[in-house]
Simulated assay, not measured.
Amino acid sequence: MMMPAPIQRFDNAFSAMCLCHRYSQAVAAFSRHVSRTGDGPLYLIFALCAWWFDSAQGRELVVTGLTAFAIELPLYVVLKNSVKRSRPSHLPSFITPSDKYSLPSGHTAAAFIMAALITSYYPELAWLVWPWALLIGLSRVLLGVHYISDILVGAVFGLACFEFASLS
Rank of each mutant, 00 (worst) to 15 (best):
S86K: 12
V27N: 10
T96I: 09
V141T: 02
I113S: 07
L159Q: 04
A115D: 09
L42P: 06
L42T: 13
T108L: 00
R140Y: 00
A109K: 04
L167W: 10
A47V: 13
C20L: 10
E72W: 03
D99T: 12
G154M: 06
L75S: 11
L125C: 13
L152Q: 04
A50E: 13
G58L: 09
V129R: 08
M2C: 03
S89R: 06
F53M: 13
Q8G: 11
P131Y: 00
C20H: 10
L44D: 13
P123D: 13
F94I: 08
V83H: 06
I118V: 15
F10Q: 12
R59P: 00
P97S: 08
L61N: 01
R22P: 11
S105C: 12
S105M: 02
D39A: 03
P97Y: 07
W52T: 14
A5N: 10
L117Q: 10
S102L: 02
A68Y: 07
A160F: 14
L103Q: 07
E163C: 09
L42K: 02
P74L: 07
V34D: 00
V145D: 00
L128M: 14
S89I: 12
P4R: 08
E163S: 14
H21Q: 09
S24T: 11
V63K: 06
V27W: 05
W51T: 15
A165F: 06
V78H: 01
E163R: 13
L117V: 03
A29H: 09
F14Y: 14
S86Y: 14
M2W: 04
I7R: 03
P123H: 14
I151E: 03
I151G: 11
A115G: 13
W130M: 02
L61R: 02
P123T: 06
T108N: 01
L44K: 06
G58F: 08
T119W: 04
A68G: 04
P74Q: 12
Y101V: 08
S168C: 12
M3F: 15
S31K: 00
